[in-house]
């Protein structure tokens, strides 16, 4: 039992570390670096486009983790 545990929880640990980074990306001191108006991208000011980009990144990273887990039968 105890020898299997680390393998099962490793993806969980990745998710945990990634969650913290995703949160930090959306608040001070990282978000202020992208909080300006220009350049405008896809018609949106940088301050809004950056948040949309974070949402898309979070989705893609978590999707990759999920697919990797399903492929390796580690969904738990």
């Amino acid at each position: 039992m105890s020898s299997e545990r680390p393998e099962v929880s490793r993806p969980g640990r990745y998710a945990m570390v990634f969650s913290v980074f995703a949160l930090l990306a959306l608040i001070w001191p990282i978000y202020p670096l992208f909080g300006g108006i220009r350049p405008m991208i896809l018609g949106m000011p940088l301050s809004l486009f950056y948040i949309v980009a974070v949402i898309v990144t979070v989705f893609l990273v978590m999707l990759t983790l999920f697919l990797w887990e399903s492929k390796n039968d580690r969904l738990g």
Binding site: G12, L23, L26, I27, L48, I51, V54
Partner: peptide, 23 residues
């Protein structure tokens, strides 16, 4: 204005703790 972006931001990461605690 941009203060409203906080509403979009928190929901993006708000549910992630469930990925490791939910199961």
């Amino acid at each position: 204005g941009a203060a409203a972006f906080y509403i979009i931001s928190y929901g993006t990461v708000g549910l992630l703790p469930w990925y490791f605690l939910g199961p």
